[in-house]
Design a protein around this nucleic acid. Structure first.
Lengths: 246, 246
DNA sequence: CGATTCATTGATTAGTTTCAACCGCAGTGG
DNA sequence: CCACTGCGGTTGAAACTAATCAATGAATCG
């Protein structure tokens, strides 16, 4: 399950400019360098479990994971898709509130909780960045509440593809997807359904419907081509214009 | 709409120990005192509008408000119920992402954005407290996603009453509601429905059903008596035990 | 007292879930 | 080599939950 990590210096780190360390200067990076450690985990692993102690805080360096909660009777809701530069764990709380499960092989950059909390307290660059990231996540979580509470199944699926396309566009440099876009789906239909508050079947049907209507093409199950991004965004009913407000 | 504020010193402030200023010392309070101003607004006022500039950040001192978004076609989702000590506005962003609407007469303690952001940068006690509050809100937003995505109408209504009872218990000193509890509903059925992702009619029917089943009593439309809090919590299916993890 | 607003209740409809079957593909072992 | 099995995904039919449409009741306010 846990593979030996590839050594990486912060300067070469792919999430150097997006993660919690984004605004750190050279001296601060040197401190982080001393206390960080990488870990690579196979797909399907539990990085954290609801109610269980979480000894390390970490950033996703590569790969994809979900944050979810499962009710006693088995109903599951995924409350977040974790992609590179996303943060795992909650400073100031010793146990995890959600399950964190890897969807692909995932490499994380981790810090022992106590060490990290000391660092936050003593390094304003990190504290400020953490606050900013947390505020962004809060906005995203509330945006998602609108999707879960008020959109139809078709709109939910469209909204999910649109949000994923936006995140992949951001992390690959170009800020906003436009016109034709190709999208790699890091999730199974089941994981999508868990995030959308739908069943697998409904999710699949809506994917089929979007394909039938020419809004998406599916070269393979995990690849989506969006011929006209704006048209798909329109299906999502969410009047979010891409979050360019900042 | 805007009434003349009652003068109040921070030491006497009802949210002194719960708001963003909770961990400030006397010197820090003195600084806040100089730059704060109170404002009291009638029920039904818009404190902020999605997409519009938000010049002040504030804390709710008394009263109740909702944070919501409305889609072009009129569908509305409330993403948060704001009660005393809750924070309004997002440091680092000049415009509001949501509508903030008062449900009752509301008094807020407000700070000009620039001033507050300077204060956050220079006062670790405020920055830390703000981070901690934001993290709590993030957890709450994600918890609510589970409600919106996976609970039935009956469970949603029960979950809402349970969460409101918990918040009112916390703010009135006792930490956890137990046995028989009386609850003041600051929201109309419509506001409840908007928060639950349901229609007014369904919300009303589920209230009736919970009353029929003896889980709640309704002396008036805005008053709920919960004879057995644990029984109601059980109806909510949400295995949250009250968030005592902190 | 009529008008208005908010809440409840009933009947019907629509959208999503549930139950079930089937397909395509990859891995496995006779 | 190829039937067998397991898994993820798709599709169909029936069941069910919540939404919609419509009417009534209760409370508040000029």
């Amino acid at each position: 399950m846990i593979k030996s990590p590839t050594l990486l210096s912060c300067g070469d780190c792919p999430i150097r400019h997006n993660a919690v360390c984004a605004t750190c200067d050279a001296a601060e990076l040197a401190m982080l360098e001393k206390v960080k450690s990488y870990r690579t985990v196979a797909a399907g692993a539990l990085l954290a479990e609801a109610g269980q102690p979480l000894t390390h805080l970490s950033s996703i360096v590569s790969g994809c994971a979900t944050m979810s909660r499962t009710l006693e009777d088995g109903r599951r809701q995924t409350v977040g898709i974790l992609l590179p530069s996303d943060f795992i764990g909650r400073p100031g709380r010793a146990t995890s509130v959600f399950d964190i499960e890897t969807l692909s092989e995932v490499t994380i950059c981790r810090f022992e909780r106590q060490t990290f909390e000391t660092l936050v307290a003593s390094t304003p660059h990190i504290a400020t960045r953490l606050l900013s990231m947390t505020l962004d996540e809060l906005d995203a979580a509330r945006d998602w509440a609108v999707v879960l509470g008020r959109l139809t199944a078709r709109e939910k699926v469209a909204a999910f593809l649109v949000s994923l396309a936006r995140r992949q566009a951001v992390s690959s440099g170009k800020m906003v997807p436009q016109g034709a876009t190709v999208l790699h789906l890091p999730l199974s239909r089941e994981a999508m359904a868990d995030h959308l508050g739908l069943t697998i079947e409904t999710t699949s049907r809506q994917m089929t419907a979007l394909r039938r209507d020419g809004l998406i093409e599916t070269p393979s199950n995990r690849e989506i081509r969006i011929p006209d991004f704006e048209a798909l965004a329109l299906e999502a009913a969410d009047d979010d214009d891409g979050g360019l407000i900042a």
